[in-house]
Design a protein around this nucleic acid. Structure first.
Lengths: 131, 131
DNA sequence: CTTGAACTTCCAGTTACTGGAAGCCTTATA
DNA sequence: TATAAGGCTTCCAGTAACTGGAAGTTCAAG
């Protein structure tokens, strides 16, 4: 499929898809006319990139995560080690997101919407400070 | 407190803290010697910035979120509207993170660590493709 | 009183895109 | 079949959000 279709299916702009190719995150085929030709597997990689980038992982982290299933040379022990490190990070992100959501929920539900609310939400928004 | 302490407490590099000041995300006092002087409230803002940036929100989104409790002029109805939009986004991020975690968990627990695993995890890593 | 760490500003470099120009390819309509 | 619109190509420049380093000031310890 052409880059436009891959863009739709992955949720990434065509520009970004070309950029990801430049930096070696995928290598789509080329059709006879010089157009890039994306497989469903390429689209899977792109969707994965879209998600993990939007969740705050760097491109290099995404490259590592992609290698978890893409790199046939890599030992499974390595895969496991990388995955475990990322799991800790993901759990932290999950906790933080959950807290942020609770704070905003509080703001939306408890503060009436007709006047300036006066809730002690700063702690929630900023996380309990270490001191 | 000095920028070094604020950096420790917020988890942000001093460089980044100065940058956030440059773009108007906070305005710490200045001590007599010209050093920046951060209050606990500044640290709260910084911690909040650290978290929300690491969760994939842009600086401009962070600015909006900060305005939820920082801008006394803003109508509460506005606050509520912004918070509700962000809530939807946060819920989506939560779902995606949870899926990513499950996939990695599967990888870690089911794929023994001594040989190349052969699990059909591509769907999980990339999210069920729309087609 | 000096030495080193932490602070200041300023400017340049990096990462991860993003926009725009110039031109080729494809498809729909006259 | 012509032609116009739209999608594709490469390339180069610009932006967002930092990040590193130089050059100088201030502070705290010895």
């Amino acid at each position: 499929m052409n880059i436009g279709t891959a863009s739709e299916k992955s949720g990434l702009p065509a520009k970004t898809i070309r950029y990801y190719e430049d930096i070696g995150l995928l290598r789509p085929d080329r059709a006879g006319n010089g157009y890039r030709d994306y497989s469903m597997s390429d689209v899977h990689r792109l969707r994965f990139l879209q998600r993990s980038r939007s969740l705050g992982f760097s491109v290099e982290e995404c490259r590592q995560l992609l290698s978890l299933y893409g790199d046939k040379e890599r030992e499974s022990a390595d895969v496991k080690a990388i995955a475990e490190i990322k799991l800790v990070e993901i759990d932290r992100k999950l906790a933080e997101l959950t807290e942020l959501r609770n704070t905003l929920r509080h703001l939306v539900h408890n503060c009436h919407g007709d006047d300036r609310p006066d809730c002690p939400i700063i702690d929630g928004l900023s996380g309990r400070a270490t001191q």
